[in-house]
C-alpha cells in the first residue's frame, strides 16, 4: 500500500471566538511535511477563516490569516469553499483572501488555490478522501 493518502481538513468554525481555526492551520502546515495529498474544505462558519481584512490588533490575539497565503508554498493548493455557505453569509469570493500557488508543471504560472464549489460538487470531493480531520 502506498504511504500517500488523501487527507481532507474540514474547517467549519469561525476564527478568534475559539482556537480551532488557528490550531487547525497548524496541523495543515505540519501535514505538508509528510508529502500527503492534502485538500482543505471551508464550509459553514469556516468560510469566515479566510475572510479578507482581518485585524486583531485590538484583541491581542495573533492575526493568523496571513499564514493562509503561505499554503501555496507548501504545495497545498486544493482549497474548496462551499458556495452555499458563502451565500448564506452574504459573502462572495471577492470577500476572501486571494490564495494562489505557482504551478511547477506550467512554467510556474500563478494560479488560484481557491475553488468555490457547490454542495453537490463538495459531496463528491469529500467522498474521494481517505482521512478526514475535522476542526
Amino acid at each position: 500500500m502506498s504511504d500517500t493518502k488523501k487527507f481532507l481538513f474540514v474547517n467549519r468554525k469561525a476564527p478568534y471566538g475559539t482556537i480551532y481555526a488557528w490550531e487547525s492551520l497548524e496541523v495543515i502546515l505540519i501535514s505538508a511535511a509528510f508529502e500527503q495529498d492534502v485538500s482543505l474544505v471551508f464550509v459553514d462558519d469556516g468560510v469566515f477563516q479566510i475572510a479578507k481584512g482581518q485585524d486583531t490588533s485590538d484583541l491581542g490575539i495573533k492575526n493568523f490569516s496571513p499564514t493562509y497565503n503561505a499554503l501555496g508554498d507548501y504545495d497545498i493548493n486544493k482549497i474548496y469553499i462551499e458556495k452555499e455557505s458563502l451565500e448564506a453569509r452574504g459573502l462572495t469570493v471577492d470577500d476572501l483572501l486571494k490564495l494562489t500557488y505557482e504551478d511547477e508543471d506550467d512554467d510556474w504560472a500563478e494560479k488560484d488555490s481557491i475553488h468555490v464549489v457547490s454542495s453537490a460538487e463538495l459531496v463528491e470531493i469529500m467522498d474521494q478522501q481517505d482521512v478526514v480531520l475535522s476542526f
Partner: peptide, 20 residues
C-alpha cells in the same frame, strides 16, 4: 510529542476517528 504524530496516525491507521 509533535503534531506530526497526528498525521502519522492518519497515515498508519485504517480509520481515524475524531472526538471533539
Amino acid at each position: 510529542s509533535g503534531l506530526g504524530q497526528l498525521i502519522e496516525a492518519g497515515i498508519q491507521s485504517d480509520r481515524l476517528v475524531v472526538f471533539g
